[in-house]
Nucleic acid binder design. Structure first.
Lengths: 210, 210
DNA sequence: ACTTTACTGCACCGTTCAGGGTAGTTTCAA
DNA sequence: TTGAAACTACCCTGAACGGTGCAGTAAAGT
């Protein structure tokens, strides 16, 4: 299994290596993936891999960097005059989308497979503490403007995000299952928003549909 | 680093090996732990390890089995006449306790470190889908007895459990941090219960303390 | 045509590690 | 006391793997 690489005019070897490595890493984990294997999958000689990346570690870091950039930062529309319910629903959707995006899942897998035992940086990207910061900011803004009463915003954020990740993120990360179809998910998000605001904003909540 | 093992009269070698292996596995992961290392930590010759366990894989499975048994099954007090709030709080506490117990965390780590890439059994024990079943049962019982209105019990359970795991389980698993002290946790649980029942049981909820 | 650059293929090194073999020693029960 | 079972110390193997060196080729710029 090697011989002729498929006709490849461009000199995107470096990118090929990274792509192959990313897939192997996220599928089989860091240690279970050999450099030989990566070279093979990338249709590239092992030496080429090492010409581009000094070591397996360096290759891994390069992938991490790219992935982090690719995931970017959540940017919600700023607090406006619309009903909080509608705005929070949008936020919930965006958060769920980020957290289930291919890139984010890959990033999580790759990080997790490497750092379960060394908490150095594992937590930062993975536990979702980082990406849920914008939610907290939004809540705090709403509080400052008197649209929400004072309460522990960090805790509330954790609750809100926790309900989302527990169905959207973790199951997808660990197994590959998705709990909902498009529509089921939206109904679930609505239920979360309603519960959340019902508790924290004294909203009259129509009971959720059976 | 060998010579005389510390005075050890009993012939608990097999148990010693399992204990040592469990610790090494959960701390360093499956692949990063060598059989030599396990033998050393267990104060046992490598040959003894292999006399008890046919292979590294077999040793791993034995540990898994023991751990699963040790975690046991959640058994809540059955639905009674007390206020639902109190009962649900107890349930929340018990669930949180299980999910943060040393054994459960170790089990999760050990499984996770081995099976991120093969969903075979990873999910079963880890995602917490299994241990949250008793919660769902409790809710369904309450619905049958008319103490709670009809709604999607599975979804509600996921929400409830999700809020707990997101602060108690995942941070502890990935990093080793605990989000709360004893008292903060209880306040958090109360907030969850209040939010949950406020939404699903039309309870008049006094707003949470600021 | 010539040089440079990227790439290949392959042999090779050093290490780590699972697992086996064995001869000798300790433990313990009959 | 004796004999079997458990255990130890130590040596060995074969394979996998990270990483290097090198000679050669294909292509692209000049």
């Amino acid at each position: 299994m090697s011989t002729q690489a498929p006709r490849r005019v461009r000199t995107g070897k470096r990118q090929d290596v990274m792509t192959a490595a990313l897939n192997e890493f996220q599928e089989h984990g860091f240690l279970e993936t050999s450099m030989d294997r990566i070279a093979e999958v990338a249709h590239v000689s092992k030496r080429t891999v090492y010409n581009h990346f000094a070591s397996k570690e360096a290759l891994f870091e390069a992938i991490l960097d790219e992935l982090i950039v690719r995931c970017g930062h959540l940017e919600f529309p700023p607090l406006n005059e619309e009903p909080l319910e509608d705005q929070l629903l949008v936020i919930g959707r965006m958060y769920a989308e980020l957290v289930t995006s291919d890139d984010f899942i890959k990033l999580s897998r790759v990080v997790l497979s490497r750092f379960i035992q060394s908490p150095r940086m594992a937590g930062t990207a993975v536990t979702g503490r980082e990406p849920q910061k914008p939610i907290q900011n939004w809540i705090e803004t709403a509080q400052k403007q008197g649209r929400l009463p004072p309460f522990d915003a960090a805790q509330a954020t954790t609750q809100f995000a926790g309900m989302i990740t527990s169905t959207e993120y973790w199951p997808r990360l660990i197994q590959n299952e998705t709990a909902f179809d498009e529509q089921g998910r939206d109904q679930y998000l609505k239920s979360i928003v309603s519960m959340f605001l019902g508790h924290y904003a004294h909203l009259e909540t129509p009971t959720s549909p059976a």
